[in-house]
Amino acid sequence: MEAYVTLTIENQVGFVEFFHPNRNSMPSDVLSKLEQTIIDAGKNDAIKVIVLKSGGDRTFCAGASFNEVIAIDNELTGKQFFLGFANVINAMRKCPKLIIGRVQGKTVGGGVGLAAATDYCLATQYASVRLSELSIGIGPFVIEPAVSRKIGVTAMSQMTIDAETFFTTEFAKEKGLYSEVFATTEDLDLAVKVLAERLASYNPDALREMKNVFWKNTENWDALLEERAEMSGKLVLSAFTKKTLKRFR
């Protein structure tokens, strides 16, 4: 299957779905499409609530595309690549509609940032999480504000330092990344549908104002995440990172 980003509307709920055949790892073009699709859904009057989901069964998002990261050969290209996740997170933050996350499986790196940037996130028991960036010579700089805002600096630091461990779904729920966890994808999808359609029946003005309250004091994130992308773009050029990433090609 080829990579895609789609938007479908059912009962005033906009389902934004992304997919990449390599465990939903995200190259720049898919990230750009995802950003624009979220912006478009936010402007669509037929949509009251947004659901962010990915295709496939057991991986929500494997983070950045390693093949594209390996190809980075200068700081500007590096910054532009890491701005991909930054731009998606900022699009989610600035979207005037509530975004529900539907996480059906494991998520790594930037995928954890996407889950953290949703306003309410539901998952299956298979949705363990990992921040592996330090182990490959960079760090989760771009997604850190979103992850720390959701689970706190202590839990974020624990995940970052223990970079080769998948933390359990129970850990993610206890720390606040997930609001509810379900045994099966079918149970998850039913819960997402019920919640999203219920929210879509509420006063849209109240939902919009509530979203503003949720994201208070994040107005500096456009500049902050750009700075973090620049930081990552420099580190990814290190000999350590280049050597490490070749193992994942």
Score class of each variant (00 low, 15 high):
Glu133Gly: 06
Ser135Asn: 14
Ile143Asp: 15
Ile136Met: 08
Glu144Leu: 08
Lys150His: 13
Gly137Asn: 09
Pro145Asp: 08
Lys150Gln: 14
Leu131Ala: 12
Ile151Gly: 00
Tyr120Lys: 07
Phe141Lys: 09
Thr124Met: 04
Glu133Thr: 11
Ser135Gln: 08
Ala127Asp: 04
Ile143Trp: 04
Tyr126Asn: 15
Leu122Thr: 04
Gly137Pro: 11
Val129Gly: 01
Ser135Leu: 09
Ala146Asp: 01
Ile143Ser: 14
Val142Gln: 02
Gly139Leu: 11
Ile138Cys: 11
Ala146Lys: 00
Arg130Tyr: 03
Pro140Ser: 08
Ile143Ala: 13
Pro140Tyr: 08
Pro145Ile: 06
Arg130Ile: 02
Val147Lys: 03
Ala146His: 00
Leu134Gln: 15
Leu122Gly: 05
Ser148Leu: 02
Ile138Arg: 14
Pro140Leu: 06
Leu134Asn: 13
Ser148Lys: 14
Val129Phe: 03
Ser148Glu: 11
Thr124Arg: 01
Ile143Arg: 02
Gly139Ser: 15
Ile138Pro: 04
Arg130Trp: 00
Ile138Thr: 15
Ala127Pro: 10
Leu131Asn: 10
Ile151Ser: 00
Arg130His: 05
Thr124Gly: 06
Val142Tyr: 01
Ser135Met: 07
Val129Lys: 00
Thr124Lys: 02
Thr124Leu: 02
Phe141Trp: 12
Tyr126Leu: 12
Leu131Lys: 12
Glu133Lys: 10
Ser148His: 02
Arg149Trp: 10
Ala123Leu: 06
Glu144Arg: 13
Lys150Asn: 14
Gly137Phe: 05
Gly139Asp: 15
Ile143Glu: 15
Ser148Arg: 10
Glu133Asp: 15
Val129Gln: 03
Thr124His: 02
Gln125Phe: 09
Val129Ala: 04
Phe141Gly: 06
Arg149Glu: 11
Ile136Ala: 03
Val129Ser: 05
Ile136Glu: 07
Leu131Ser: 11
Ser148Cys: 11
Ser135Lys: 06
Ser148Val: 07
Gln125Val: 15
Ser128Phe: 06
Val129Leu: 04
Phe141Cys: 10
Ala127Gly: 13
Ser135Arg: 09
Ala123Lys: 04
Ser135Ile: 07
Ala127Ile: 04
Tyr126Pro: 09
Gly137Ala: 08
Arg130Met: 08
Pro145Lys: 03
Arg149Ile: 03
Arg149Ser: 11
Pro145His: 05
Ser128Pro: 11
Leu134Tyr: 13
Ala146Phe: 01
Pro145Tyr: 05
Val142Ser: 02
Tyr120Thr: 07
Leu122Val: 03
Thr124Asn: 07
Ser148Trp: 00
Leu131Pro: 08
